[in-house]
Simulated assay, not measured.
Amino acid sequence: MINIVLFGKPGAGKGTQAEFLKEKYNLTHLSTGDIFRFNMKNDTELGKLAKSYIDLGDLVPDEVTIKMLEDEVNKNTQSAGFLFDGFPRTIAQADALDTFLKIKNWNITATIALEADDNILVARLLERGKTSGRADDQDEEKIRNRYDEYNEKTAPLIGYYQEQNKFHAVDGIGTIEEITQRLTQVIDNL
């Protein structure tokens, strides 16, 4: 079983690349962003709670995110593996994910970070905001707040996964095909 954590700042291309990787490696793609948006669109209690944080540019609390993700994994226990997109975002989430997977005799195979300059990513998100209708992609101040949150809470995951020899950085600038090639090279060499 291959379990990949794909992370990077908002706009780094995680969702785009996840589509290619899930097909190539027959993985179940679990995007917390997609799960949150589904719940918000359907006005579930979880969706209302998640929206209250996302609208401020803040991260959704760990306990909400962890429970939601565990439910999704449990719905797909026959999968060849999972591609975690947007999770974990904190050390506490990484610990909870490791504990949850260990119960199932699974583990994280690798963590791959798509890296790119903030200014390039802001431009990407503002452009995406014009067509996506996502309010969080239309306000540069909210975008930069998301980056501050990432730097404070998510960037420490680099050290967490480096200690486990599971961290791989990939240049997130280039064509979609070039970035996909870089990602598959890392995964094929695991």
Score class of each variant (00 low, 15 high):
residue 81 G to E: 12
residue 82 F to K: 03
residue 85 D to R: 04
residue 85 D to H: 06
residue 89 R to E: 03
residue 89 R to Y: 05
residue 94 A to H: 09
residue 95 D to V: 08
residue 96 A to F: 08
residue 98 D to V: 02
residue 98 D to H: 05
residue 99 T to H: 11
residue 100 F to L: 06
residue 102 K to Y: 02
residue 103 I to Y: 12
residue 103 I to V: 15
residue 104 K to C: 03
residue 104 K to F: 02
residue 105 N to E: 12
residue 107 N to I: 00
residue 109 T to G: 05
residue 110 A to T: 13
residue 111 T to C: 14
residue 112 I to Q: 04
residue 115 E to R: 10
residue 115 E to Q: 13
residue 115 E to F: 09
residue 119 N to G: 13
residue 119 N to I: 05
residue 120 I to W: 11
residue 120 I to R: 08
residue 121 L to W: 06
residue 121 L to G: 00
residue 121 L to E: 04
residue 122 V to R: 01
residue 122 V to Q: 00
residue 122 V to M: 02
residue 123 A to V: 04
residue 124 R to S: 06
residue 125 L to H: 00
residue 125 L to C: 08
residue 125 L to V: 09
residue 126 L to N: 04
residue 128 R to D: 04
residue 128 R to G: 14
residue 129 G to M: 08
residue 131 T to Q: 05
residue 131 T to A: 03
residue 132 S to K: 10
residue 133 G to D: 12
residue 133 G to A: 11
residue 134 R to E: 03
residue 136 D to A: 11
residue 136 D to N: 15
residue 137 D to N: 15
residue 137 D to A: 13
residue 139 D to G: 04
residue 142 K to Q: 10
residue 142 K to I: 15
residue 143 I to C: 03
residue 144 R to T: 07
residue 145 N to V: 00
residue 146 R to D: 04
residue 147 Y to N: 01
residue 149 E to Q: 15
residue 150 Y to H: 05
residue 151 N to P: 00
residue 152 E to D: 01
residue 153 K to L: 12
residue 154 T to N: 05
residue 155 A to F: 11
residue 156 P to D: 11
residue 159 G to C: 07
residue 159 G to F: 08
residue 160 Y to T: 11
residue 161 Y to V: 12
residue 161 Y to E: 10
residue 161 Y to K: 05
residue 161 Y to L: 10
residue 165 N to E: 14
residue 166 K to F: 04
residue 166 K to Y: 01
residue 170 V to T: 11
